[in-house]
Amino acid sequence: MSRARSLTDAPFDRGLQAERTALAWRRTALSLALGSLAAARVLTGAFGLWSYVIGVLGLAAAALFLFSADRRYRRAHESLVASSVEPTGARLASGGLLLATMTVVALGAAAIGAIFVIVAATR
């Protein structure tokens, strides 16, 4: 009886590690979405309409992180609950981590570029 329940929706551990990780992805995606919107708005002075391209790309990355994190959480939860022996690291797509890294580096590079464009224009 309790076993059947644990196979469906009880959390894997009391520390709620998988749940906390899913929430961490959510707030990261939210931060990235907000940052992208702000970049689209603020970098217009330097890049013109291209700043909206940056904003749209950032929003797309944020949406990708949001949905893939949800899907990965569900799969991680299922495999953790199904058998604690199975290595679940396989469910953590490290490609997403690398993509997040490169997205933020690109955003920072765009910010530096914008500042140099503005400084060059005002001198």
């Binding site: 551990d13 520390g15 590690q17 998988a18 906390r20 990780t21 961490a24 992805w25 707030r27 990261t28 931060s31 990235l32 940052g35 702000a38 991680a76 953790l80 290595p87 679940t88 690291g89 953590l92 981590l97 997040a100 890294t101 933020v104 955003l107 920072g108 910010a111």
Partner: peptide, 24 residues
């Protein structure tokens, strides 16, 4: 232990959010 990997992933995400805050 998968819980350690998940904690490591959250640390990664915390650094990413720190980076976003610094850039902003």
């Amino acid at each position: 232990d998968p819980r350690f990997s998940l904690a490591n992933e959250r640390t990664f995400l915390a650094w990413i959010r720190t980076a976003l805050a610094l850039i902003a």
